[in-house]
């Protein structure tokens, strides 16, 4: 019989390794999905997913059962992804010629996207929107994902990102508009692409 998340959590806290494995395995795809959307590229998403799983493992005894485990774990994953983005900010941007060429071929303005990302997204059939999302600067992408993918309210997002709620609203509105316009291609996207957020 399939055990509930709560049962797995309780067993894992008591040292049951298999329960910990089952718990993480059950939520892995969704956690990776959140990290993929927030990070905007495969490599960072994989790093963030790793960090998220470790964070969940380390903090499991802090889960008090007041919310669903899925909700709690996705919040932990979000924070791990944000950490990864902060670390990435201190690393130099990729300057690989092939990546730059692909970027220039596929988009009218400067979006940085890896070859692997582009290839993977083309295969999925939902490429245009997924790619457009990846092109958004993280300043706008992250709150949009937190709102529209994770269903967090504005106040929660403001807390997570440590910015005023008005800023959150503004960034989400601009991010959504930019996504729609990138996909619509009837005009150049506004200044919310990577490196252009000022």
């Amino acid at each position: 019989m399939k055990r509930s998340d709560e049962q797995l959590v309780a067993a894992a806290i008591n040292g049951d390794r298999q329960s910990m494995n089952d718990l993480l395995g059950r939520h892995y795809d969704r956690i990776y999905g959140i990290c993929r959307r927030i990070a905007g590229n495969e490599a960072d998403a994989l790093d963030a997913t790793q960090e998220a799983l470790i964070a969940i493992t380390r903090r499991l005894d802090r889960f008090d059962g007041r919310s669903a485990f899925s909700t709690w774990s996705y919040r932990v994953a979000t924070n791990a992804c944000l950490d990864e983005l902060r670390r990435r900010k201190r690393r130099p941007d990729p300057t690989d010629d092939a990546v730059l060429a692909l970027r220039l071929d596929s988009q009218p303005s400067g979006a940085v996207q890896s070859y692997a990302d582009i290839t993977a997204d083309r295969v999925t059939g939902i490429d245009s929107i997924a790619t457009a999302l990846d092109q958004l600067d993280e300043t706008f992408r992250v709150p949009v994902v937190m709102r529209d993918v994770m269903d967090l309210d504005y106040a929660q997002i403001a807390v997570e990102l440590s910015v005023p709620i008005g800023t959150v609203k503004s960034r989400i509105a601009r991010g959504r508009t930019a996504l729609a316009k990138i996909i619509g291609t009837d005009e150049d996207p506004p200044d919310v692409q990577r490196g252009d957020h000022g």
């Binding site: 910990m20 494995n21 999905g33 997913t49 790793q50 799983l53 380390r58």
Partner: peptide
């Protein structure tokens, strides 16, 4: 746009999944 964003992206490769789970279990 929102509906597409909510579609879970393609899963990570199996090898990554295994590595990630093993690392977490090591912790």
């Amino acid at each position: 746009v929102r509906n597409v964003m909510r579609v879970t992206p393609p899963a990570a490769a199996h090898e990554y999944r295994q590595n990630h789970l093993e690392a977490a279990l090591a912790v």
